[in-house]
């Protein structure tokens, strides 16, 4: 039995995982996910795709909220911007989808600079306030700029063909989302263990101390915000393709809350936590609906009319319960279980 977790080299300290088993399990999970689209039925496949897209967006928010400790209440704004950038570039101007994805990320990043520069100079909750304002302003801007965005009519988006590969079928599109998710996962893990990631965590834990250690607060906060918006913009493009139609109504404010719920439920700042939280939050309404189905038709009918409200209420309750009883989130529970498994019957 290992008596402790000793690191002797710097590269050993920052390696993604020092356990062979973690790599093996991850590879098996990846293989299973690659095979899944060909096995699952249409409904399960669409849930899987939604989980993957949500995961990308949540990973984006995690850089800002989880690592840097800044709250954004308007991240749905960057989803909308990304989705519209893709739709305008690809559907209206006929650019290749890859250029569309680049545009969705870059335009969202640009928007984040505009929002971030005035608000990131300040400490505290101001970013939450300006992003909240941004998510409402951007909807208005989209509706007003009908010449570019088609206003309230929205833009329909087709499934893309990238580098000669046709992603038209549901299975192929799920695989595309999987590929982008894996890329994002590695990007986030690598950001976390680099100088930048450590600087962001230092800002989160104590910004005065971080500043004393030579971390430029404004630069690094802006960096976190822009990266976060870039990733969220790409998630927005994928969500637009998934919905096959981009409109202001397709991106309700609840998505911002959903993303925050994912981070809190999963465990702030942990990439594994984001994955667990996403699966939990996306499947929660499904599970509750199944339970209600057995509870009786009266209850089911009551909630059938208000799926959106039921979801909102669930997210709210889950956020409050986790903050109150398990602030470390699912990843904290996972660590406890793991420790118990390894050390039982010893306490530690």
């Amino acid at each position: 039995m290992r008596s402790g977790d000793f690191k002797e080299t710097y590269s050993g300290l920052i390696v993604l995982s020092d356990s062979t088993w973690v790599w093996i399990w991850s590879a098996l999970l990846a293989a299973a996910l690659v095979c899944a689209p060909f096995v699952l039925n249409a409904y399960a496949l669409s849930l899987l795709t939604l989980v993957l897209i949500t995961l990308i967006g949540a990973l984006g928010l995690n850089i800002l909220t989880g690592l840097t400790g800044l709250i954004s209440l308007g991240h749905v704004g960057f989803l909308v911007v990304g989705a519209y950038a893709y739709a305008i570039a690809v559907t209206k101007h006929g650019l290749p989808p890859l250029a569309g994805f680049a545009a969705s990320g870059l335009v969202a990043a640009l928007a984040s600079v505009i929002v971030g520069v005035p608000s990131l100079r300040l400490r505290g909750l101001y970013l939450a306030i300006t992003t909240l304002a941004f998510s409402f302003i951007i909807n208005n801007v989209i509706l007003e700029a009908a010449a570019v965005t088609d206003g309230a009519r929205g833009i329909s988006v087709l499934r893309p063909t990238i580098l000669g590969i046709d992603f038209d079928s549901d299975a192929a599109f799920a695989l595309l989302c999987l590929a982008v998710t894996v890329l994002t996962l590695f990007a986030c893990l690598n950001i976390r263990r680099s100088r930048i990631g450590r600087a962001l965590v230092a800002i989160r834990d104590n910004d005065t101390a971080a500043r004393t250690m030579g971390v430029n607060l404004v630069t690094f906060k802006l960096y976190a915000f822009v990266t976060s918006a870039f990733i969220t913009g790409i998630a927005g493009a994928l969500l637009g393709i998934y919905l096959s139609f981009v409109s202001v109504e397709g991106f309700p404010f609840l998505l911002s809350i959903e993303a925050l719920a994912i981070l809190i439920v999963g465990g702030l700042g942990s990439v594994l936590g984001v994955v667990l939280g996403t699966v939990f939050i996306i499947l929660l309404p499904e599970v509750v609906q199944t339970v209600l189905h057995f509870a009786g038709s009266g209850v089911e009918a009551l909630f059938a009319n208000g799926v959106h409200e039921l979801k909102a209420m669930l997210y709210g309750v889950v956020i409050i319960l986790f903050l109150r009883f398990e602030p470390r989130g699912l990843v904290g529970i996972w660590h406890d279980v793991k420790r118990l498994w390894v050390h039982w019957p010893l306490r530690f």
């Binding site: 400790g69 709250i71 209440l73 505290g124 909750l125 939450a128 609840l254 809350i257 925050l260 719920a261 809190i264 009551l302 208000g306 959106h308 409200e309 039921l310 909102a312 209420m313 997210y315 709210g316 309750v317 956020i319 409050i320 903050l323 109150r324 602030p327």
Partner: peptide
């Protein structure tokens, strides 16, 4: 006594709960 983030997020969660309770 919890961090500011937790307190603010609780009010955000409360907001969505109250908002959807209207319909019910």
């Amino acid at each position: 006594g919890e961090p500011l983030f937790a307190g603010v997020m609780v009010t955000v969660a409360l907001a969505v709960i109250l908002r959807s309770s209207i319909t019910f």
